[in-house]
């Protein structure tokens, strides 16, 4: 009874109802903030850390990224005649340490984040899928 005598107006709930109604009627609010993902995408920042990319000409295959990777994600493998890193995305932390430590600035991370795949093997990105050629791109 004490509770009802104190709260019989239900002012708190009514206040809440007003706030939610404001949202329904879009008063002072953006109507929707979500995006319809597969059809529209959010803008990524240039620093986004997604799938790796390796500059074909800059990389010297030194293996510093391999040593510094916290999770043992990177292995240096032979590709054609030179040695390049191979990244196992399934284990990758996307921490960016490999980018930081690369002495030739050959490793970078792209904005590609849709990396789901059907097999574990296809998560291993060999040099054939990671390499890019700076001259060709620019």
């Amino acid at each position: 009874m004490a509770w009802i005598s104190k709260n019989w107006t239900m002012s708190g709930i009514i206040k809440g109802l007003i706030v939610t109604l404001k949202h329904v009627l879009h008063i002072g609010n953006r109507p929707t903030v979500t995006v319809q993902y597969p059809y529209e995408r959010m803008k990524l920042s240039p620093r986004f850390r997604g799938l790796h990319a390796v500059d074909e000409n800059a990389c010297i295959g030194c293996g510093i990224c391999e040593v510094n990777c916290p999770n043992g994600t990177i292995r240096i493998v032979k590709h054609n005649t030179r040695w390049y890193p191979q990244v196992n995305i399934g284990m990758c932390l996307f921490c960016g340490i490999c980018v930081d430590v690369c002495p030739m600035n050959a490793m970078k991370m792209t904005g590609n984040y849709e990396l789901a795949d059907y097999t574990r093997e296809s998560l291993i990105y060999g040099p054939d899928r990671l390499l890019f050629n700076k001259e060709v791109k620019q």
Binding site: T20, H23, V24, R30, P31, T32, V33, Q36
Partner: peptide, 14 residues
């Protein structure tokens, strides 16, 4: 849809 409108979402759209 009502929930979505309150919560600034679209709700089912596809």
């Amino acid at each position: 849809k009502v929930v979505a409108m309150v919560q600034a979402r679209y709700g089912p759209m596809v």
